[in-house]
Design a protein around this nucleic acid. Structure first.
Length: 219
DNA sequence: TATTGATCATAT
DNA sequence: ATATGATCAATA
């Protein structure tokens, strides 16, 4: 088992050493079985990178590197290094437990420090042949945080008012709210605009690829 | 073809 | 049921 990195510098060093390597090579070293594609293995790349970098595994509600306060995110990219998919952040509770301020929000905490590891994600490319790109340790600058805050506050108000019908993935410039469940029939408890307890689709916060794109290619 | 809405796997 | 890790695939 790979030990957790003791310092941020060590984490960055390890991550940098992964750049240019293939998922197949890494899988072999770590005794992971690489699937040909990710259908039915959606979290596989993330789990492989966790193991490679010594992230604390499991489903604990804390950063991947708790002592460093750093979150690990793999991001599938095309041949030009542009993200192919949006990035999952965290659940958006509809039952009245969503934080009341951006400062207190789980979204802000999660995005305080993220180690982005781009990985080739074209479906035309067999998983073992996909290469890892150059990692980026990102902390939101003032402009980015202002944007995230604006989006979060918008979504939080809609949810807080219980106006569930207004929830729409088209809203939010950088941060959107989308369904997040194992199946379309999944339901969670929500509070509607009359204060009634109702069942609705589970939602989560996601970063748009147009936003993550700017993080991977600074400048 | 970019995006939204739906879905897949595992651990606690 | 909720958290972790995300990508799939129908549609606009």
């Amino acid at each position: 088992m790979t030990q957790p990195p003791a310092t941020e510098a060590e984490l960055l060093h390890r991550a940098a050493a992964l750049a240019g390597r293939t998922l197949g090579e890494l899988a072999q070293e770590l005794h992971f079985q690489a699937p040909p594609d990710l259908r039915g293995h959606k979290g596989w790349v993330g789990h492989l990178l966790e193991a490679a970098l010594g992230a604390s595994a499991g489903s604990k509600a804390e950063p991947d590197f708790p002592h460093l306060g750093v979150e690990l995110k793999s991001v599938p990219v095309d041949a030009s290094g542009v993200p192919i998919e949006s990035t999952w952040v965290t659940v958006a509770p509809l039952d009245g437990t969503l934080e009341r301020t951006w400062e207190a929000s789980h979204v802000r905490a999660k995005l305080a420090a993220v180690l982005w590891v781009p990985v080739q994600g074209s479906r035309d490319l067999l998983v073992p042949l996909r290469k890892i790109g150059t990692p980026v340790l990102w902390r939101p600058n003032a402009e980015q945080e202002a944007l995230l805050r604006e989006d979060w506050e918008f979504h939080a108000e809609v949810i807080g008012l219980g106006e569930l019908w207004q929830l729409d993935a088209r809203k939010g410039e950088a941060l959107q709210v989308r369904p997040k469940g194992a199946r379309g029939s999944d339901r969670v408890w929500a509070t509607d605009s009359d204060g009634e307890r109702v069942a609705d689709t589970p939602r989560g916060f996601y970063l748009r690829r147009s936003f993550t794109r700017t993080l991977l290619a600074p400048g």
